[in-house]
């Protein structure tokens, strides 16, 4: 069973907004839209979807770290997925939705152009990621397909590690 984490925002009271409780955990991903492409990661890593409030800029921060915000008593960093994948800043309006993720010790928000939410990808549709050559390819584990089309599966740990390395170099 999937845990109850898929809240759409602070005011959501529905216990199963995507109708996934009671279904098998395998094959579920959380999907984001970025630069005309669909990217997803393991659904269990998504904690919450929220509406983004004002970001506080940090001094000398790299472009992929546009700021931090206060959420439920803690400060979370927002990472710009567009910058990390393609050196392209994500344009965000106040109130845009963002997803809070946790992988290992890292808990943060991912900024993307759009949030599609949960999707299920049949295991048989997966293929290896494209060969290395683009910055994004190095951050993918595989690519899949669902009724809406292709989805690139992100390795969030590798994405965060890439951010850490870029920060050290900056």
């Amino acid at each position: 069973m999937l845990p109850y984490w898929a809240r759409m925002d602070d005011s959501t009271t529905a216990e199963d907004p995507w109708g996934i409780l009671g279904q098998e955990e395998d094959g579920w991903f959380f999907c984001l839209r970025m630069l005309g492409e669909r990217y997803a990661f393991e659904a269990a890593l998504a904690l919450e979807v929220i509406r983004l409030g004002p970001l506080t800029r940090l001094p000398a921060a790299p472009s992929f770290l546009p700021g931090v915000f206060h959420h439920r008593g803690e400060v979370l960093a927002a990472l710009d997925l567009g910058q990390l994948i393609a050196d392209h800043a994500t344009s965000l309006a106040h109130g845009s939705r963002t997803v809070i993720v946790q992988t290992g010790a890292w808990k943060l928000a991912l900024l993307a152009e759009g949030i599609e939410g949960l999707i299920r990808i049949p295991e048989e549709s997966f293929e290896p990621p494209p060969s290395l050559g683009s910055p994004a390819a190095a951050l993918l584990t595989r690519v899949g397909r669902d009724p809406k089309g292709h989805v690139s599966i992100l390795d969030l740990e590798r994405l965060i590690e890439s951010a850490r390395l870029r920060g050290v170099r900056a």
Binding site: L58, A60, L65, F69, H70, G73, V75, K107, G167, V168
Partner: peptide
């Protein structure tokens, strides 16, 4: 409030020792 770990690591700025919510902003 502590600087988020990923931000602390990326910035490497030890002079930034935290954030305080004041007047509705960090």
């Amino acid at each position: 409030l502590p600087v988020p770990p990923i931000a602390a690591e990326v910035l490497g700025l030890k002079g930034l020792c935290g954030l305080v919510p004041l007047d509705g902003e960090l």
